[in-house]
Design a binder for these strands. Structure first.
Lengths: 160, 160
DNA sequence: TAAAATAATTAGAGAACCCAAAATTGATTC
DNA sequence: GAATCAATTTTGGGTTCTCTAATTATTTTA
């Protein structure tokens, strides 16, 4: 079974291959903020595990299973990050959280987050609703026009 | 710095103390599905770290810092679980995911999730909107009345 | 092409987990 | 009080991941 850390490494390797066409120990080291020797060691482990093809002092390529894991992890990352940003979490935080969560969320939950983003993006009504939530989130106040349609007093009301 | 695993152990210890008034190695072992020897070892580590007071063959109590961590972790768990359940994730999955996520979410994001739950619970409008999302989530179809107010054709439309 | 610079690997070690099996302690029962 | 039983701890070992320092390979440059 693939570990979380292996998923991290596979994701970075995949990204670097997409960006530059090849992978350097140095780059992975910088990207993940670990020492070069840690990268070498992980490369050896992942070669043994069948996720990458690794040759000393040479290049690294992803195997089919490695590619699958990398893509799946990237996809999860995107889903989570998009979702959090929709909710109003700042890009940097959303990215940071997505990096952690992507390894552990059940596919059920992932599916829910995906559907949520779809729903928001396909409905004007939803977008409006979201604006109201964002306003509440940022200021702690409800928006007047919105309150008119509820059973609440149309006075700015601080959330306690 | 407290590790994720220490947070897990502290949470369980705190829960057991609340429930039964005391803590047995056996119970923690069962709760976390680890061997008794792992629990003993962790107890020793957490005693060294100042999170618990541990005496061989005796009881375990939480220090102030241990209590703080346990409570904070429990609180985060609750926020995340509630949030996911609001979105329609099944209780079991929501709980499972919350157990993982509680250790890693930024406080920014946690705050957003809390506010989201508040917002939903305090607005009829929001609750209605949520029903529509839940329906879409479960069936893949939009609800007619809802679509009337959007730029979409009021025919059941499968999401692709 | 030989020396210098850079990159990568190996060697050795440590932290945070985990386990099974053996030894110990504390509680119960006869 | 001694024997038994259950709970706990110790011992010894394993995995995954990390590091620094030393070594080796590759690339650059003079």
């Amino acid at each position: 079974m693939v570990t979380e850390r292996e998923e991290d490494y596979l994701k970075v390797v995949h990204e670097l291959i997409e960006q530059k066409g090849y992978v350097r120990v140095k780059d992975v080291s910088k990207q993940l903020d670990v020492s070069p020797s840690s990268v070498t060691e992980m490369f050896q482990r992942m070669d043994d595990a069948g996720y990458i093809n690794y040759e000393k002092y040479g290049g690294v390529t992803l195997t089919d299973s490695g590619t699958e894991i990398a893509k799946s992890t990237q996809k999860k990352h995107g889903v989570i990050k998009d979702f959090l940003e929709i909710l109003g979490v700042q890009e940097k935080m959303a990215d940071e959280d997505a990096c952690k969560i992507e390894h552990v969320l059940t596919s059920d939950t992932l599916d829910t987050l995906t559907k949520f983003a779809d729903f928001i993006n396909k409905n004007k009504e939803a977008a409006t609703w979201l604006d109201h939530f964002r306003h509440y989130h940022e200021t702690g106040y409800y928006i007047d026009e919105y309150l008119i349609n509820t059973n609440q007093c149309p006075i700015h009301k601080k959330k306690k």
